[in-house]
C-alpha cells in the first residue's frame, strides 16, 4: 500500500497553523485538530509582538 497523502496536525497555535498551511501548499491534505473553539493559540491573545510591536492578529 502506498503512503497516505494526508497529515494530521495536532494543535492550532501559530506552529500548528503554519505547519498546516505549508503542508497544504506542498500538496497534502491536512487535518488540523484543535481543542478550543478557534485556532490561533496564545499568539492571538498577544496585543503586540517584540521587537517591532506589530499587531499579533
Amino acid at each position: 500500500m502506498s503512503k497516505s497523502g494526508a497529515i494530521m496536525v495536532l494543535g492550532g497555535g501559530v506552529a500548528g497553523v503554519q505547519t498546516a498551511l505549508d503542508l497544504a501548499d506542498l500538496g497534502f491534505y491536512v487535518y488540523l485538530v484543535e481543542k478550543k473553539a478557534s485556532i490561533g493559540g496564545v499568539m492571538a491573545q498577544l496585543d503586540k509582538t517584540f521587537p517591532t510591536n506589530d499587531c499579533s492578529l
Partner: peptide, 29 residues
C-alpha cells in the same frame, strides 16, 4: 518565540513532505 515556532512549523511540514513524497497530490481537491 513566534519566529522560531514558525520556522519549526515550516521545517516539520518539510519533514512530513519528505516522508510522504509519494503521496503528494493524491488527497488534495
Amino acid at each position: 518565540d513566534v519566529p522560531e515556532s514558525v520556522t519549526q512549523a515550516s521545517g516539520a511540514a518539510a519533514a512530513a513532505s519528505e516522508m510522504l513524497a509519494d503521496g503528494r497530490n493524491t488527497r488534495t481537491v
